[in-house]
């Protein structure tokens, strides 16, 4: 998420999303565009609020139940607000054997939340993911768009601190 977008107002975000939908040649015919549209919506809003799914359904003329079905099918989409920096700890096989559980535990202790939860200050959301395809760097985690590899638990406090500073 680039910071210019964080600062958009809700209505500016909807205008942006609207333009994205209209950029498809024929929004009514192009129902296959639903997934990219929901991606864009989540980029803009940080999650998929009901109002945004309603907006997408109406704009694309796709039944709301279908939009909701797609949004709940893929684990990438979230219907509840996420923190500014989502932490995704890879729990794929390679990362797992290389010590991902210990990394995850350290993070939980440091920020005091469980998997799927968001910190009270809205800074972090903790997520477990399947293999992200960076097995050579195992164990791996991502924070926002940043990737951290070959991790050991003692590195975690310093990494998290960076984001507290950036806040």
């Amino acid at each position: 998420m680039s910071c210019t977008e964080c600062k958009l107002t809700e209505s500016e975000k909807l205008t942006e999303l609207s333009a994205f939908i209209e950029a498809h040649p024929d929004p009514v015919e192009a129902q296959g565009a639903l997934i990219p549209v929901l991606h864009r919506a989540q980029e803009l809003f940080g999650y998929l609020p009901t109002e945004v799914m309603d907006f997408v359904a109406d704009k694309m003329q796709v039944p709301t139940a279908y939009v909701y079905g797609v949004a709940t099918f893929y684990s990438h989409f979230t219907l509840i607000p996420r923190g500014k920096y989502p932490i995704s700890v890879c729990m794929g096989t390679a990362c797992y054997v290389k010590g991902a559980p210990a990394i995850l535990d350290t993070i939980k202790q440091q920020i005091g939340i469980r998997t799927g939860e968001t910190t009270e200050d809205g800074l972090f959301t903790l997520l477990e993911t399947r293999c992200i395809g960076a097995c050579g760097l195992a164990p791996v985690l991502t924070i926002g768009d940043d990737v951290y590899g070959r991790l050991t638990p003692d590195q975690i406090p310093d990494i998290l601190e960076k984001y507290h500073v950036e806040k």
Binding site: T50, M53, P63, T64, A65, Y66, V67, Y68, G69, T72, F73
Partner: peptide, 25 residues
């Protein structure tokens, strides 16, 4: 609900073992 009645009230929530048929939201 969708094909014969054109209502599309019912859809799926989630996936796999946790899939439930329900109206939107």
């Amino acid at each position: 609900c969708g094909e014969v009645q054109g209502i599309h009230c019912l859809g799926y929530h989630s996936r796999g073992f946790k899939t439930v048929v329900m109206p939107a939201y």
